[in-house]
């Protein structure tokens, strides 16, 4: 039995931010064809399904459902914008992108955004290193996390770059068992070949 409880309203609001976007409207992304995802051109090896918007400037793709594998593409987030949608400004505000961030600080921004959007207590950056994303200097972030009430260890790999003061992100994540490794080569190939 717990010692303390926050008010009902707070709980109601947090839930709202958690609700998975169950909106249908999946769109087939055909293999080997270049798809225009907002400001990015992406060429997948296999067929993918394009879903809703995790953020104002973002799109999510999945093969087996977002709980098993997902890749998100965010294009041109302006200074002051958030990576993930701010569903509840008062109770779960999202970190705001600052175009003055130094390269290694993009990892800090990504971590805080991902933690807030998914309400995580367990998140660790395994590695952050310079990388190339669509011919731009960027940061590669490898991370590990668990979702609340789930014992599955999940891994992720994100690439972030700031171009003309705007943030571009590609982010792949999946359960560590089987799925992450199975999808990684294609995810990496897509992220490396992405064009602005």
């Amino acid at each position: 039995m717990a010692i303390h409880r926050r008010s009902v309203i707070f709980v109601a609001v947090v839930l709202a931010a958690w609700s998975p976007s169950a909106s249908a409207g999946w769109k087939l992304i055909s293999a080997k064809e270049t798809a225009q995802v907002d400001g990015l051109k992406v060429t997948p090896e296999r067929d993918w399904n394009q879903g809703g918007r995790p953020g104002k400037q973002g799109r999510v793709w999945t093969q087996d459902g977002v709980g098993l594998n997902a890749i998100e593409f965010f294009s041109a987030i302006p200074a002051g914008g958030s990576l993930y949608k701010e569903r509840d400004k008062k109770n779960n505000p999202m970190p705001k992108f600052d175009s003055g961030l130094l390269l290694p600080e993009l990892a800090d921004f990504f971590e805080r955004s991902f933690r807030a959007a998914n309400q995580l207590s367990d998140f660790t950056i395994v590695e952050s290193a310079p990388t190339d994303i669509g011919g731009n200097k960027g940061l590669l972030v490898r991370y590990r996390y668990t979702m609340p009430n789930d014992e599955l260890t999940r891994l992720g790999e994100a690439r972030l770059a700031v171009v003309d003061g705007k943030l571009f992100v590609a982010n792949y994540y999946a359960p560590q068992l089987h799925y992450f490794g199975a999808g990684l080569p294609e995810a990496q190939a897509m992220m490396q070949r992405v064009r602005f």
């Binding site: 290694p104 395994v126 590695e127 952050s128």
Partner: peptide, 8 residues
């Protein structure tokens, strides 16, 4: 974990 990025 971010040694490479710092070096850059």
């Amino acid at each position: 974990s971010d040694a490479a990025a710092m070096k850059m």
